[in-house]
Amino acid sequence: MLKIDKLTKRYPTGDLALNAVELEIPKGQVVALIGPSGAGKSTLIRCINRLVQPTSGQAILNGVNITALGSGALRSARRKMGMIFQEYALVERLTVMENVLSGRLGYVGFWRSFLRKYSQEDIDEAFRLLDRVGLLAMADKRADELSGGQRQRVGIARALIQNPDLLLVDEPTASLDPKTSRQIMRLICELCAERELAAIINIHDVALAKMFVQRVIGLKLGELQFDGSPDQLTPEVLTRIYGEEDWEATIEKVDDEEAEDEAVL
């Protein structure tokens, strides 16, 4: 469904952020993208929806080469890719409902969005999503009144109302406490399963990633280092991606926490 072909990004400063990355993601698969800071994780997902302009290579979504689109067609392509951000990136002075509905901007014209005249289906869908993420009662609150976890839920609803085929998720849990992080990751993965969405989740918490995803991709200095199931993430692999460190604890911890988590439930 998503095919990335020799995607390369060189910043004007000369830094090579992505070096000929090759990747294919089928429908409905949730992929974690791990790697050290500066590995190009963020650049990769931003190159897919072209918030960052790739230098060369292609990103093909449902047979459409996104890298070659003009601005009008790019807008339509972006509607099919929902994005979730690290610091939520909600428009803080708008209400929760407006933030969710802003996910429909690619579908409605300027004046309708100016007058907040969204169709009844959009409004119903927004309420359904808010209900799904547990924030129905907050619909008319201003976004800056919410807590971090609640804001991220609004961010998720905004991405889903686009009716996307693919979710691009940039460090969804980096600003959250451990418990909320898990809840958010679980919510994202559940929603992807419900809607058969593919997702690329850029995440630096390896243990958390292993808990929820079917596939892990390791990136180092803009190059693909690892592509496999979470079980294959051995200390050797982690050393290859991140460098020398005692990895046993990270891997063990996962099992412990998982057991703990189940006990709580």
Binding site: N49, L51, L74, R75, S76, A77, R78, R79, M81, G82, M83, F85, A89, L90, V91, S102, G103, R104, L105, G106, Y107, S113, G155, R158, Q162, L168
Partner: peptide, 8 residues
């Protein structure tokens, strides 16, 4: 960035 990413 977030609003741009929705296809606005």
């Amino acid at each position: 960035e977030a609003i741009t990413a929705t296809g606005a």
